[in-house]
Simulated assay, not measured.
Amino acid sequence: MRIISSDEVDACLEDRAVLETLRKAFRSSLIAPAVPDCRIERLNGLSGNFSFQPAWSDFAGQRDVGRGYVGCSLVLDLPEAPGRSSSLYILFSGSGGQPIAMIDGMRLTIWRRAGLHALAAAYLSREDTSRLLVIGETPQLPRLLSAYLTVRRINSILLAGAGRDTLKKLSGLPALSGVHIGVTENIQEAQDGADMICIAGPESNPGQVHALDRLDPPAGCHIDVLDRNANLPGELLQEARLFSSDLSDPPDPDLEWAADLKDLTQGNKAGRRYYGQRTLYLPGRRSGLADHALAAHVFLRT
């Protein structure tokens, strides 16, 4: 069995290949059932969470067990380490069932998240999108921005709430060469000129007003939200056309969802209906299909 490290994951992945691997996965017949999480009781009334997301090739449908894989992502969240999940991906041979790879799940997750958000932007943002506003920050931001640039010709990025370390990382990112990167503290004015807005996470500067409750993007803007639990204005959620990665388990079942990535990639439902429409993407809870596709892609290239 191969043990594939984070460095090896990075070495065999690039944004365009990730995007197309995910697109093909949503068009495929991969099977990714929902499995309940396991609660882990800890001390002082706290609890952790152990989640499993299995997926496998459609062996019966393809009438062949000689090709394909069975895999599962394992994610452990403990209250003693908030916001720091530990994860692995285990890949098994579809023919003999023997384990063939154990992959750094944390690094795989970063690539998968960036790829899914970029794939959504490819279908939902306007083709002439060039100005991006990023509200908040996340360690995944360099990977995410690099993925965005594979689907849209972004020439201007405004950052609201990014820390000094994030700015330093972005300034040295080859994918952002030639892109103007600026900083703003006025989110309300900055959003007026944005073609696309990324809600990346909490701001690093506590003195800055996040003002998501007053978020009012211009007509035609695409809003990409990384945290499915983000507190977004009700008016925006009611007015924008809403999309997610997997509507078999939507982020909020009370909202009216237009389509998910399977609908969009297979052409079953439309994304943006007209130029001035506002679109909004929230990630779903399930990622078994996407994780399986990327894990198989990594295994074949290491």
Rank of each mutant, 00 (worst) to 15 (best):
S93E: 15
E256N: 09
L300I: 00
N231E: 15
G68K: 01
E185M: 01
A121L: 06
A55N: 04
L236Y: 08
R143V: 00
A190I: 10
T21H: 02
A160T: 01
V134N: 01
S95N: 13
S125C: 11
K169Q: 15
E235S: 11
A162M: 10
I187T: 13
T302A: 09
D192S: 11
W257I: 02
L289D: 06
A219E: 12
L149G: 01
G271S: 06
R2L: 14
G68S: 03
G68M: 01
P79S: 05
M102L: 14
L236V: 00
T129I: 03
I187P: 02
S130G: 15
A122Q: 12
G71I: 07
G271A: 06
Y89I: 07
L247M: 05
L255H: 04
I197V: 15
N155K: 11
V65P: 08
F92K: 00
E127A: 13
D7P: 00
R39I: 12
H117A: 10
L141A: 01
L76E: 07
S5A: 12
R112W: 04
H117F: 02
H210Q: 11
V70K: 08
L282R: 14
D37L: 02
N268R: 14
E256V: 04
P142M: 01
F26V: 03
G161E: 10
A17E: 15
V209A: 14
G178K: 13
G115N: 10
F59N: 07
L149Q: 13
L300H: 15
L46N: 10
L76W: 11
Q62R: 09
W257P: 02
R113W: 05
V35Q: 05
E20G: 00
V70W: 11
G220S: 08
A230C: 02
L236A: 05
E20A: 00
R228Q: 07
G234I: 00
P99Q: 13
N44V: 02
V151N: 03
L108K: 04
G284E: 07
D224K: 02
L124T: 07
H297D: 13
N49T: 13
A25N: 04
G284D: 10
P79Y: 05
I199L: 07
A160C: 14
P36F: 06
T138S: 14
D64V: 01
F50N: 09
A160H: 14
R2F: 13
V151E: 10
L226V: 09
Q53W: 03
L167Y: 07
I90G: 04
P79K: 04
A175G: 00
N231M: 06
S171F: 05
R152S: 11
R152C: 11
G284Q: 07
L159Y: 12
L232C: 09
V70Q: 09
A270H: 08
E239G: 03
V65W: 14
E137K: 01
P33W: 12
G220E: 09
T166W: 04
D216A: 15
A34L: 12
V209D: 13
V225G: 00
S85F: 09
R273V: 03
Q62H: 13
F52K: 03
S28R: 04
R272S: 09
G83Q: 03
G172R: 05
L46E: 15
